[in-house]
């Protein structure tokens, strides 16, 4: 049998289906626990934020990149390094605003939504909203206050999934008590 080469998998990876279905179990639980889609979206964003806060530390520990010089560099690092590293895909950076403070990430596939169909009666559910939270949380930890939201979603019949990121402001370190 050709299955003899039963070598152990990469210990730094997990099965994508396990990941997708675990996320699905979470969303199903939230739909049970909350009254409406808006509340579920909010909770997903909040949980994503907490995940982002954790993931960025892992990222900083592994990827030896310094601070980004501008938002364009940030966009590139998110798409080409961070997404690749954590979800195994590379979104396209696009639709820059004239001021260079806003851009979109275009995703052709989305590992969170494989095997997923939106349940009827949940048209306002942003199923993958956790991603917005992750990006917001991770960027906040490196001193960037960024607004993140879905503008298109293949789950809702759009041709592509589009996440919009808007830079708001730089954040500063906390000043110690008793100093200015």
């Amino acid at each position: 049998m050709s299955r003899q080469g039963n070598r152990a998998g990469d210990p730094r990876k997990v099965n994508g289906e396990l990941f997708t279905l675990t996320y699905g179990a979470l969303v199903a639980q939230l739909i049970k626990d909350y009254e409406n889609d808006e509340q579920v979206n909010k909770q997903l964003d909040k949980m994503g934020y907490n995940m982002g806060v954790r993931l960025i530390e892992d990222y900083l520990a592994r990827a030896n990149t310094g601070r980004c010089n501008d938002f364009r560099e940030t966009a590139d690092v998110i798409a080409k390094v961070a997404f690749k590293m954590y979800l195994g895909l590379t979104p396209v950076v696009s639709n820059w605003s004239a001021a260079g403070d806003e851009f979109s990430l275009l995703l052709e596939s989305n590992p969170l939504t494989e095997f997923v169909e939106l349940p009827p009666g949940h048209s306002n559910l942003n199923y993958s909203n956790i991603m917005c939270g992750i990006l917001r949380g991770a960027l906040e930890m490196v001193q960037m206050d960024v607004d993140v939201r879905f503008v298109q979603d293949t789950l809702k019949g759009d041709n592509i999934t589009e996440i919009r990121l808007k830079f708001i402001k730089r954040l500063e370190d906390a000043v110690p008590v008793g100093e200015d």
Binding site: G5, N15, E17, F19
Partner: peptide, 28 residues
């Protein structure tokens, strides 16, 4: 089909991504 290895139907994800998701689920 005979040659393909098991469990390769879908790209794998980083264990850290799974770990932080699971972490949130436990806390929730």
């Amino acid at each position: 089909n005979l040659e393909k290895s098991l469990g390769k139907g879908k790209p794998e994800v980083n264990i850290a991504t799974f770990a932080v998701l699971f972490s949130e689920i436990v806390q929730y």
